[in-house]
């Protein structure tokens, strides 16, 4: 078990799923019902996206709530141009923020989750509960002392501070997700490794880590998104000159005299990177990594 080589996620995701095709009339109906439901839900989810999309191409005279569903009469990319001009300078900085924040906090969460679920020490449950409880702290209440704390530590305002803060506040949620994910890993696997004489790190590296794909997908999506879309920490710990895209987006969309087409276009520009992460990472759900590796 512990010596098996684990297929790289990419290949296993691309590999065709072995699935027995048994087509009975009942399962045929079931499949149709499922499909209809899926499409209905899809339309529901896309309704706001449709408004976002069409409005971004409208001239300002056509942007209002009662015209939300209409297609633009005069298509224009003016909104996109305005949005790009005001968002592009901060785009790169936001990558520098969100990628390390997502990767590091996921890695820490994975190790923590492993220890708390499969390599427990006395008091592990209490510690876990304390971690979780920390997630509920309302950040609005603590941003002022938090700023004091980061200045005192000597972190420069801007991206480095934000990475640091997002990693810290991402640890509880990543730990939670991995701990509960690893809870579904059969005990026998870990015990077998221990019988083989593997220590903690080898058990983690050879047994747990290869099974962690879907878990990482979930935490990276969460952390990347929350770092990417965070506004509260961003306004307190950075500024327009060194901060992430939400600050620029808020300047565009958060005012009273909103340029609707530009703010909708801006919303889409700002969402594209996150969306790409979902599409790329989403494939790794498909592989059914865990089931596959156990079967082999």
């Amino acid at each position: 078990m512990s010596t098996q080589t684990i297929p790289a996620p990419a290949t296993s995701a691309a590999a065709p799923r072995p699935r027995k095709k048994k087509s009975s009339p009942r399962s045929q109906t079931a499949r149709t019902v499922r499909f209809v439901l899926l499409v209905l839900f899809l339309l529901m989810v896309l309704l706001p996206a449709y408004v976002l999309f069409v409005t971004s191409f409208k001239p300002s005279a056509e942007t209002s709530a009662d015209r939300a569903w209409l297609l633009p009469q005069n298509w224009t990319t003016e909104g996109w141009k305005t949005a790009w001009d005001s968002l592009s300078p901060s785009l790169w900085r936001t990558f520098q923020l969100a990628i390390p924040a997502a990767l590091i906090s996921s890695a820490i969460g994975s190790i923590n989750g492993f220890v708390l679920s499969r390599w427990r020490f006395p008091g592990a449950d209490v510690l876990f509960t304390l971690f979780l409880f920390g997630m509920f702290i309302p950040y609005q209440a603590v941003v002022i002392p938090l700023r004091q704390l980061t200045v005192w530590i000597g972190l420069p305002n801007g991206i480095p501070t934000l990475i640091f803060v997002h990693i810290i506040y991402g640890i509880p949620i990543c730990t939670l997700i991995f701990r509960n994910y690893y809870a579904s890993v059969p005990h026998e696997l870990v015990e077998a490794a221990q019988v083989d004489g593997a220590g903690m790190f080898r058990t983690y590296a050879s047994i747990i880590l290869p099974l962690s794909g879907p878990g990482f997908v979930v935490t990276i999506i969460w952390q990347f998104t929350s770092a990417w879309n965070d506004y509260l920490f961003a306004i307190f710990l950075s500024n327009t000159r060194n901060g992430p895209i939400t600050i620029a987006l808020n300047a565009l969309a958060g005012g009273q005299l909103t340029n609707y087409s530009a703010s909708m276009a801006g919303a889409m520009i700002a969402s594209i990177p996150t969306l790409i992460v979902y599409i790329v990472l989403g494939r790794y759900f498909v592989g059914g990594l865990m089931a596959g590796s156990v079967k082999s």
Binding site: L42, A65, I279
Partner: peptide, 28 residues
Amino acid sequence: EGIFRSIYLFPMAVSFIASGVVWRWLLN
């Protein structure tokens, strides 16, 4: 399946700073 999954996930990508405007309209 991937298409459905990505689209169901997509709203998470949009921050409320921006989608708030759309929702203000939709919930008029």
